[in-house]
Nucleic acid binder design. Structure first.
Length: 156
DNA sequence: GCCAACGTTGGC
DNA sequence: GCCAACGTTGGC
């Protein structure tokens, strides 16, 4: 099993919205960066992802989602009305992919970026690197387990 | 293939 | 709102 982190701006797609989705499941679409795309394609059913809210104060991880459908062509890339439309993506040879994820675990206490920065073992995390913009990124088992424990702890 | 210009991301 | 970091575009 592998671990990842998925970034989303709450104004685009929030944890709350996910909770209200049927079966608390959503397509993870709109990834338009090749490196992020490659991580999406590497995901296997059952892999777990930290759900990260970027571009908001505070930045938090409210919980964990799991991959319930492995990578398939991102339908939004072919929809000319979508902001994620990419005319250069050929349906016969799709350029962009999506996965489906389902809410797996809601943290008792959302984990904040501030908290993460205080933990020496997390200093190497991609998320915390200056200028990191990768919206889909791998997380080590160790990092994942530390963050999961933080979230499970009542009172932060 | 280089690289300047430009647009976007995202923490602060 | 600022701006550094980064990815992409396109002229040459």
């Amino acid at each position: 099993m592998k671990y990842y982190l998925l970034k989303t701006e709450p104004q685009t797609f929030s944890w709350q919205t996910l909770k209200e989705m049927p079966a608390q499941t959503t397509i993870w679409e709109g990834v338009r960066n090749y490196q992020a795309r490659n991580f999406l394609r590497a995901m296997k059913k059952g892999d777990l992802c930290l759900f990260y809210h970027s571009n908001v104060t505070p930045n938090i991880i409210p919980g964990i989602v799991k991959v319930v459908r492995e990578a398939y062509p991102d339908p939004f890339a072919f929809d000319s009305r979508s902001k994620y439309y990419d005319g250069k993506s050929d349906p016969q040879n799709p350029r962009w992919f999506a996965v489906d994820v389902q809410l797996a675990e809601e943290f008792v206490t959302p984990v904040t970026r501030e908290q993460l920065k205080e933990i020496p073992e997390l200093a190497g995390m991609e998320l915390l690197k200056t200028g990191s913009r990768l919206s889909v990124q791998p997380v080590s088992e160790r990092e994942f387990s530390i963050i999961r424990k933080l979230g499970a702890k009542a009172g932060g």
